[in-house]
Design a protein around this nucleic acid. Structure first.
Length: 392
DNA sequence: TCTGGGGTCCTAGGACCC
DNA sequence: TCTGGGGTCCTAGGACCC
């Protein structure tokens, strides 16, 4: 019996590549997809041409412009990427029913009864189909578990195809820095360095007891990761995963001290959160407000209620109270509202707050449907009308 | 160069109860 | 009188990922 084989498929510079397909004149140019260029934003995706200039995801757009003055900076179109992503998933399902969408540009596939030699052929077919149908390239990593497949897909980007057998993991990654491992970020790298662990092979051989003492449950995960071990199951798309939270946050165009303006923004965020919950059929019992001050210090404050709710006015009332108690008097850079403790609508039945008035619900449904068609800004309630910023 | 937005999971401390 | 032990729930923050 052949063991299960896992593919990890990673679209190459996905957002930039999609922009090029809808505007072929951009082909071969440094294309940078970012947030609204008129607001404070960062690079979402830089094409490989742009990466030659040192551009990376997460880099502030100002810095990116300096490094790459001739770059084409495009405001992202999330809907377009989601649409393309779904189309690609449909193609992947033709190759295996066991597809786990991992993000908008990544997916895992599982194959059973597939010979390893044949796996490479299947991967080539997938790459050819995606090239033919979408004019996009991807990189595929193949291994016996998700972790190895994920690490493999990054080795030969772009347009890569990499197989890693269990006994090959340390050959391929042993000499690399621990920060190259999926799940090992800046802080963990630094902590590991202080333990004398620099390379993946050092971590692979490090005593697990020490790791567990320093990192808690994460310690044994680290040791396994460094050895290419992973027994996490693939979760097929049709099983889905229930979200744990729904939130929105917004970095203001400029830091703002005007409390009326901030509250109107908070209301908009509360309404967006409510709308997403209703669209998914969820109730929540906890609201979290996030505040980032001018100095980038960031706090979160949350409140759990005894009952589940989804009404905008309740979300806003809770958020507003948390905000007013914690906002201080200075300028604020970002505010966010998030709902957690989610339960499906059916499970929330019988809750006291569920018995609220029908008219309110109908009103909200109408507003939601208009916003679905025409965008969040098409309808506003009085309190969320923009109040013009004072001149700076 | 001035630092997005959407998430998940884990930890630690305090409140509270028995 | 000057100090327990166990357990659960809630809250805040940190780390990481795409």
């Amino acid at each position: 019996v052949e063991p299960r084989i896992i593919f990890h498929l990673d679209m190459d510079a996905f957002f930039s590549a999609v922009e090029v397909t809808s505007n072929p004149g951009l082909a071969g140019k440094p294309v940078i997809v970012c947030g609204d260029p008129y607001r404070r934003s960062v690079v979402s995706t830089a094409s490989y041409e742009a990466r030659k200039f040192g551009l990376r995801s997460g880099m502030p757009v100002g810095q990116a412009r300096k490094l790459c003055p001739d770059g084409v900076f495009v405001a992202g179109n999330p809907q377009k990427y989601v649409y393309t992503s779904i189309k690609i998933l449909q193609v992947l399902k033709e190759f295996s029913p066991l597809v786990e969408p991992f993000s908008v540009d990544e997916a895992f596939l599982e194959f059973n009864n597939l010979d390893l030699g044949d796996a490479v052929g299947v991967a080539r077919e997938i790459k050819a189909r995606i090239k033919r149908d979408f004019n996009l390239t991807c990189s595929i990593g193949i291994g016996l578990n998700k972790y190895v497949a994920k690490m493999a897909s990054g080795l030969e980007k772009p347009d890569g195809l990499t197989v890693i057998m269990p006994d090959e993991f340390l050959e391929r990654f042993g000499e690399k820095q621990v920060g190259e491992l999926w799940g090992v970020g800046e802080k963990t790298s630094a902590k590991l360095k202080s333990l004398g662990v620099y390379r993946v092979k050092d971590l692979a051989a490090f005593p697990e007891k020490t790791l567990t003492r320093v990192f808690g449950v994460y310690g044994s995960y680290l040791k396994m990761a460094a050895n290419g071990l992973d027994n996490s199951p693939l979760v097929p798309y049709y099983q889905g995963v229930e979200p744990k939270s729904v939130g929105h946050e917004y970095t203001l165009v400029q830091d703002v001290a005007d409390r009326r303006y901030l509250l109107s923004t908070l209301l908009r965020l509360a309404e967006q959160v409510g709308r997403r919950m209703r669209a998914g059929g969820y109730f929540c019992n906890t609201i979290t407000v996030k505040i980032r001050f001018s100095d980038f210090k960031t706090i979160t404050r949350q409140k759990k209620l005894a009952t589940a709710f989804e009404r905008d006015d309740i979300i806003y009332a809770v958020a507003r109270n948390l905000f007013e108690v914690n906002c201080g008097a200075g300028k604020i850079r970002l505010i966010g509202v998030s709902a957690s403790g989610l339960v499906k609508k059916a499970e929330a039945q019988g809750d006291a707050m569920f018995e609220d008035d029908r008219r309110h619900r109908i009103f909200v449904r109408v507003v939601d449907s208009i916003r679905d068609k025409f965008g969040d800004d098409s309808i506003k309630r009085g309190g969320s009308m923009r109040i013009s910023l004072p001149t700076y």
